[in-house]
Simulated assay, not measured.
Amino acid sequence: MNGVEAFLLGRTLMKIGEQAMPRPKSGPAGAVRSVVVVLGDVVSHPGTTVGEIAARTGLPQSQVSTAVARLEQAGSVDTEPDPADRRRRLIRPAAEPSARVTEVRATTIDEALVAALTGPDGTAPTPDTVREVTDALDLLAHALTPSVTAR
């Protein structure tokens, strides 16, 4: 696999993940990707600021601020003033998972994965194929995503 193939696989996996995630019951639709990217960064870097998240993720600062506000409203993150600079807020994962986090974590990608594996002619994948791909994704998640093993 080369870098382009890895990049394209990553984009495909992001789309499968987005399709599998339950939609929020309230708040604006859309922007799921930026919210998930921001939450992932906060989990990896607790006690971070909006500017630091923007620098690490490449997202515009305004988009990070919006995502943090949505995550705070959902109870997924907590914020507090930065003692070094009271104008900034430090962002960290909420001590207890919110109902939304619990809902998202409980939702599998099974249906979205089957849809992605369905052939252009509408031929559904075999159960063995779905199981093999699911096992491979579990292996990749545990090897490449430290936060998965922390759950």
Rank of each mutant, 00 (worst) to 15 (best):
T118R: 00
S26C: 05
E5L: 11
A31P: 02
L39C: 02
P120M: 00
D121A: 06
V32C: 07
S44H: 14
E5R: 13
P146R: 01
S26W: 14
A106G: 10
I91T: 05
L9F: 10
G27A: 01
V38T: 15
L13Q: 07
V68Y: 05
A6Q: 15
D110R: 11
K25N: 14
G40C: 02
P125G: 02
V42P: 02
A141E: 10
V130W: 02
L144N: 07
D135R: 11
S62K: 15
T108L: 02
T134H: 09
P120G: 01
R23L: 15
T48K: 03
V35A: 15
R131L: 13
L113D: 06
L39H: 12
R87P: 03
V104Y: 12
A143W: 05
I53M: 10
R151Y: 07
M21N: 06
T107S: 15
D128R: 13
G40H: 05
E103T: 13
G40S: 11
D41M: 03
T107W: 02
V114K: 03
L117F: 01
A6Y: 09
R92I: 02
D41L: 02
A84F: 02
R100N: 12
L144Y: 11
L144H: 10
R56A: 15
T118E: 01
I109F: 02
R105F: 05
A69F: 06
S98N: 09
T49S: 09
E96D: 12
T66M: 12
A150T: 15
L139V: 07
A116F: 00
G17M: 05
L13R: 03
G30H: 04
A69E: 10
V38F: 07
S76R: 10
A136D: 08
R92W: 06
R56P: 02
